[in-house]
């Protein structure tokens, strides 16, 4: 049983996620502590991706070498967005810092789908509607201009090729410069799963409401209003839902302090 303080070894741990091969080793009698305490081994670089390579784990010397290179790689990594490429890159980064591995085919397919939807929306609403497309971890993602938000969502719901009739999740996120409202839409008949987002500045945040289109957005938008301060124009009943009516402040904002 190792009993040195853990802190130094933790910083040297390669910060990227790995694809560990589930070994058929003896799991000592259900002690989860030992399993967690085991440091993971980096699989050798290759076309790594969620299709895990069943390679045996490397020995410690190589692990130590990788950890030195890893700390440099992690700085580059945290700045970028777009998760799909991330999960493929890390395993290759430490050993071969020059060439990033090819992006995961699922991410490429998602981006292509997002571009298709972009074409549909541009045809209906004009070129300024879609600001950006991408892939949010294998889900096609579109960034819609704030003014055309409800029109874009309505257009995709009514379009027979896409038929996004089910709103699965709606969330708001507070970033340093803007607040982002994200909605995940699903077509229950055709199987499409699309992520759409829009951004609004933090002061005077206003977004057109989706409640007339999807009744479920009613409470979701009230929650985003309550906790983040985004007003949804056209919402039938814009009031606080989780906090009481006289509460001031928006708790989920990053600059919200409990001590007022």
């Amino acid at each position: 049983m190792s009993d040195e303080p853990r802190k130094p070894s933790e910083e040297n741990q390669p910060s990227e996620p790995r694809n560990p091969s589930p070994q058929r080793t003896q799991d000592p009698g259900g002690q989860g502590a030992e399993a967690i305490a085991r440091t993971a081994m980096n699989p050798s670089p290759g076309p790594a991706g969620p299709a895990a390579t069943k390679q045996p784990p490397e020995k410690t010397p190589e692990g130590a070498e990788k950890s030195v290179g890893a700390s440099g790689a992690s700085d580059v990594k945290t700045g970028t967005a777009g998760a799909a490429a991330q999960s493929a890159k890390p395993a290759a980064k430490p050993a071969a810092k020059k060439a990033p591995p090819p992006p995961d085919p699922r991410a490429v397919a998602a981006k292509e789908k997002a571009d298709e939807i972009k074409a549909v929306l541009i045809a209906k609403l004009g070129a300024s509607a879609v600001v950006e497309t991408g892939a949010a971890h294998f889900t096609p993602m579109l960034l819609i201009d704030r003014g055309k938000w409800s029109d874009a969502v309505t257009a995709l719901r009514d379009d027979p090729a896409w038929d996004l009739n089910y709103l699965e999740c709606m969330a708001g996120t507070d970033y340093p410069e803007y607040i982002e409202v994200v909605v995940y839409l699903q077509s229950t008949e055709l199987g499409h799963f699309v992520c759409m987002k829009t951004r609004t500045p933090r002061d005077g945040a206003k977004v057109p409401s989706l409640a007339p289109i999807y009744p479920v957005a009613n409470w979701e938008e009230r929650e985003i209003f309550d906790l983040l301060g985004v007003t949804f124009t056209g919402h039938p009943d814009m009031r606080r839902i989780m906090m009481w009516e006289e509460f001031e402040g928006h708790p989920l904002r990053k600059d919200y302090s409990v001590w007022d």
Partner: peptide, 8 residues
């Protein structure tokens, strides 16, 4: 806490 304690 019991999970991470190395000496139990």
């Amino acid at each position: 806490c019991t999970e991470v304690c190395p000496t139990e």
